[in-house]
Amino acid sequence: MADQGSEPDLHPLANIDQVIHAPARLMVLTYLYVVESADFIYLMRLTGLTWGNLSTHLTRLEEEGYVEILKEFQGKKPHTIIRLTEQGRAAFRVYKKSMAQVLDDLPD
């Protein structure tokens, strides 16, 4: 029988934010976390995601209130700027802390 006391506390993992946990969205949020804002093309180049893929993930993150998508025109061309909201920044911090807690407690 396993020693209950030595098992890592998996509670934070159970509460992990599934919206952030998806690899592509995690990558998008990681890059947005370290910059003030980036436009759509820049994020596409950084993440290596296709246009459609990135659009889908950004829409999901926007629905969750994690990112803010601002649209403007540069001449006649549409230009999309994306930035992390305060809610998104806080959610990312919680996610980072939860993952670190679980992974640090796991035995080698």
Binding site: E36, A38, I41
Partner: peptide, 13 residues
């Protein structure tokens, strides 16, 4: 710029 896009760097940078 049309190929790489643009970015505003964070406070640390």
């Amino acid at each position: 710029k049309p190929r790489i896009g643009s970015v505003k760097f964070g406070p640390a940078r």
